[in-house]
Each structure stands twice: as structure tokens, then as C-alpha cells.
Design a protein around this nucleic acid. Structure first.
Lengths: 191, 191
DNA sequence: CCACTGAGTTCGTTGACCAGACTCACTTTG
DNA sequence: CAAAGTGAGTCTGGTCAACGAACTCAGTGG
């Protein structure tokens, strides 16, 4: 690690994992990637993170094999950051941590819940589907549901707006290529 | 948070969770607590962490309700730090992260594995027992197994030595009270 | 009386984080 | 064709947390 953020010789795989995703912002970046955020500027406005830090984290996560750069245009070369297999494998710990945070570190109800797309049942703590008896639902089969909350002021940025909806995990928040416009989620009401 | 380590108004329970256990060292402290480490000095030597940082982290985790102070002697008042219910509930994300680290962030075989005490089967990725069909094995029913590795130099400190053994999770590394001597694990061979 | 233990606190240095300004290669608009 | 805009950065200076080492302090054991 170029950063001073390694954990010496802890004889534990946890230390290895934390060297990769344990730094400040890293897991939030991975979470946003699951939500369908892919571009530098979208991570930037949605996470409200210093540019230099985002640059460093994306580079570190790419280097570690959690993200992969994928060109979405050539002329000025521009890249999407998308999850690799190793990144997708972070779904179980990520989901478990979110559940824990919702249960023990938050007084409000969660604004997002995760459901099995096929049957609509909410995932249990372990990331399985209680209705279908699947032990571990793959992220591609998970639907993210968003519950509006009158108290919360509502984020201003476009990424947050595009995510304030029900949609499958991993679906890009922006239309594939060409326009690059934000997907309106399942809500067709925005002109 | 007194520390500058909060994540503004991310509308996500993950941010809440990371404010509690996302700081450097925090999850490793929690892991050691699952391993049966309970005292300030034992965390200190096993994690090789600056004293001031450990003081701050233990205070923060206690404040957040993950750990609880429990007096183990009166005369100079001394406390064990033990996991609360909220702390115990961190087992699923913690185990999932360790599995991820072992699979994707480590080249060696893991030196510790976790098994269902009743049947001896290794826990699956989600923390369930594949043999018994239990979706989530409680930490108290988990046995930690240690596999020696000739290459690894072997840690010098007594806590690491006491943990280089097979034992149930949460069993204190030191004998209950009075002597305060290290438990030899299941290995009765150390005089 | 002295050394030791356990659990910290204090201090100076190093390094990471932060916010904002600047860069640079293009593209789009007037 | 010039001016403005876009996307993805780099640079910079200040602040704050982490680090390692030394020091404190209450009580105990020899």
C-alpha cells in the first residue's frame, strides 16, 4: 500500500480485507457501484468527497481488483468504474453491514430496502431470500426499493434523485451510451 | 461524533454503520473481542496499536454500545471490554468480510477457520451451517480453528500464542479472575 | 522502600484528509 | 472561429488524526 494504511502482519484475513476496503470512503464507493453509479463525477457529487481522495480510492480499488475501468467513449478517453467479480463478492458483507447499521446504529427506518426480484420478499440478515429459501441471492437478482421520508430534506444532486426510486442493483444510473442522460428509474414522470 | 469521521447526510444505513465501526482499527478490535480478548493491554500487544488510539477506539465503541465495560477487579478499578448484543450482532458482517478477505485479498490459505461447534462443519459464506441447515450460527456456537503455517514467523506476544489454538468464540483468553493467567487453549502442554 | 503492573495521558512529528483553485483535452454553442 | 462547457483529473496549503515514545498514577508484591 502506498498509503500508510496497512495492518502489519495480523495473521487474519480480516486485515487483508480492510487494507482493500477498510479505508474511509472505500465501502461507500463500492456501495454506490452496486447502486449503479459508474462515473467519476457521479461518485463525486453523490458522496460529496474531495476529488483527490476519490481519485486515490478509485485507483486503489481498481488496483486491488475490486473495480475495473471500462471505456464509455474514445475521443477524450473516459472510463466507467464497474465492479469485478471480486467486487460483486462484496455484496454479502456489504449487505450485512447495512442491516446492522439499520438495526443498531440508526434511529430512523431505513430509506432503502433490498428484495429478491423474483418474489419480492425482503432479504434476510444473511442476504438470503426467506420466501424462496435461497441462501444467498446474487446482487443481480436483488431489487433496491426506496421509501420516501418526509423529514429528510431530500438531496439536491442528480445522482441522488436518480437513485430515489425502485430499481435493480447494478443498473447504471445513466442510460447506456450516447446521451448519457440519467435514467429516471421506474418513474417515467420527469421530462 | 467528536472525531471528524462522520459521513454527512448519506441517506444510507451503511454510513451510520461506518461511523461506528468504519474507523481504522475498530473492526479489528471487535474481531479480537470475538476471539476472547478483553483487556486494554491484551488488545494493545495483539493489535500493535498506539495506546492513545486504542483508548479512543474503546471509548467510542463503548459509547456506541458495541462494547461494555465490566469490572474484573476493584482495588485499582480495572475493566474488561466485552461485546454487547449490538456487538455480537456484528458477527455476520465480520465473518462475511473475513471470508471475502480470505478469498479475494489474500494469497495464502487462511490460518483460522470457523466451524459449527455442534457438528464441526465449516461455516459457509453467509455464516450458516451447511450440514445442519442453520441459516445463521450464533457466535456462541462457533468454534475457531487455528491452522499452523510453517512460513509465517509466529507472533511473539502472549495473546497471539494463546489464540494459536482451537477454541470457541468469545471464550476469554485469560482465566476468569484471580490468576489472570492465559488460558492455554485446548492444548494443555504449556507449563 | 523499590520495582512492577495495568491503564491510561502528553507530546512532537508525520502523514492523510479536506476545500478550493487550476489544468487539460476535447465538444458544443453562438 | 472564438467562447463556453464538460469530464476527469492535479496542485496547494491548512487542519486534523495517527503514530511512537516518554511520562503519569494508583495500587500491589517483594
Amino acid at each position: 500500500m502506498a498509503l500508510g494504511t496497512d495492518y502489519a502482519q495480523q495473521d487474519c484475513t480480516l486485515a487483508r480485507a480492510l487494507e482493500v476496503v477498510g479505508e474511509r470512503w472505500s465501502l461507500l464507493i463500492v456501495r454506490d457501484a452496486f447502486y449503479g453509479v459508474r462515473r467519476f463525477n457521479d461518485f463525486l457529487v453523490h458522496l460529496d468527497i474531495p476529488r483527490a481522495v476519490l481519485t486515490a480510492r478509485l485507483a486503489a480499488l481498481t488496483e486491488a481488483g475490486v473495480l475495473r475501468k471500462e471505456a464509455y467513449q474514445q475521443s477524450p478517453p473516459r472510463y466507467d468504474y464497474v465492479l469485478t467479480d471480486a467486487g460483486l463478492a462484496l455484496w454479502p458483507p456489504l449487505h450485512a453491514l447495512m442491516r446492522w447499521g439499520g438495526r443498531y446504529a440508526s434511529q430512523d427506518e431505513p430509506t432503502r430496502t433490498f428484495h429478491h426480484t423474483d418474489c419480492g420478499a425482503r432479504l434476510d440478515m444473511t442476504g438470503g431470500c426467506p420466501a424462496c429459501g435461497i441462501a444467498q441471492v446474487a446482487p443481480a437478482d436483488v431489487e433496491m426499493r426506496w421509501l420516501p421520508d418526509a423529514d429528510r430534506p431530500g438531496r439536491a444532486d442528480q445522482v441522488a434523485a436518480a437513485l430515489a426510486t425502485t430499481s435493480p442493483l447494478l443498473r447504471p444510473v445513466r442510460a447506456a451510451a450516447g446521451s448519457g442522460a440519467f435514467a429516471g428509474g421506474d418513474d417515467p414522470g420527469n421530462s
